[in-house]
């Protein structure tokens, strides 16, 4: 009010001084308040995003732990149920009483024990191969995938083929193993759920990126389905796929073909420090 009284008493001081000051102040305070509220909104959004990512990571970690436990249980069961009885039987054939038996029975017992030990060796080899396929270790992803697809095709249930277009350089062994596991899991899912008549895998590289694409004609997943299942408590296998792909800093996309009849799964990863293929 003092301000206005001064202005009224003096004709030289225009009204604009009073209203201008009020307007400028309003604008400035408005700007500051807007910035504060806007930043709070941005931060709330960031926190929500971080929380979602945290939950997702937690879910993936749980899935990975669960898978590890299942794998251990499977190995334990294989050793306990298959290798254990086989070795116990071999031991029965080679008991202390064997020396008191006649020569023919002795030879028969030794032969039987040898057979059982051979079976056990084969069993342990299979178990070891399921943990780390020797083809993958020695000859690389192309051979391992071709081997896997050949086995599927020869079973007669599905036509499976793989074609590697640009695989002159091998990936890092860890990346190859992870990629192979992901392909195995995807193929396993297709075999179990899709009712497809064929699977076709293609490999390519572009701009230092390594691409694997799986095609099939059965029932498949789209990216939306994958994201939904990944966030739900179901889909342990998919969560493992996601966590494995993340571990090699890769990406995975699920989509329907342009023809809308086939489904495609694309795995993309950076070709970092690859090694020359044999």
């Amino acid at each position: 009010m003092t301000f206005l009284q001064i202005m009224d008493s003096s004709s030289h001081v225009p009204m604009v001084l009073f209203f201008g000051t009020i307007a400028m102040l309003a604008l400035t305070i408005g700007l500051i308040v807007f910035i504060i509220f806007h930043q709070r909104r941005v931060m709330r959004y960031q926190m929500r995003l971080q929380k979602m990512e945290y939950d997702q990571q937690k879910m993936l970690l749980n899935a990975s732990i669960k898978l590890q436990e299942e794998e251990r249980q499977r190995i334990a069961a294989d050793l306990h149920d298959d290798a254990g009885p086989l070795l116990a039987t071999a031991r029965l054939y080679l008991n202390e009483n064997l020396v008191n038996l006649d020569k023919t029975t002795q030879l028969q017992s030794i032969y039987n024990a040898k057979q059982i030990i051979d079976d056990t060796i084969q069993l342990i080899r299979n178990l070891s191969h399921s943990l780390m396929p020797p083809t993958l270790k020695n000859f690389g992803l192309e051979s391992a995938v071709s081997d896997l697809f050949q086995k599927i095709s020869s079973s007669g249930s599905m036509n499976a083929s793989a074609r590697f277009h640009d695989y002159r350089e091998r990936l890092q062994p860890e990346s190859e193993l992870i990629l192979f596991r992901v392909i195995q899991e995807l193929v396993n899912n297709i075999l179990k759920h899709s009712n497809a008549s064929f699977i076709h895998l293609t490999q390519n590289t572009n701009n230092n990126k390594f691409f694997i694409r799986l095609h099939h004609d059965g029932r498949g997943l789209t990216q939306a389905d994958f994201d939904r299942l990944n966030k739900s408590s179901e889909g342990l296998g998919l969560k493992n796929i996601q966590s494995r792909v993340r571990a090699v800093h890769g990406k995975i996309f699920f989509e329907k073909d342009i023809s809308q009849t086939h489904f495609k799964v694309t795995i993309e990863l950076l070709k970092e420090s690859s090694m020359v293929a044999p």
């Binding site: 001064i6 003096s10 030289h12 001081v13 225009p14 604009v16 001084l17 009073f18 201008g20 000051t21 400028m24 102040l25 604008l27 400035t28 305070i29 700007l31 500051i32």
Partner: peptide, 22 residues
Amino acid sequence: CILYLSGTLFLFMYTSSMTDRE
């Protein structure tokens, strides 16, 4: 800074045209 500058903008704008009493 901006509260001070926006609050005194019009005052400084008209400083030259004011009498000492004003």
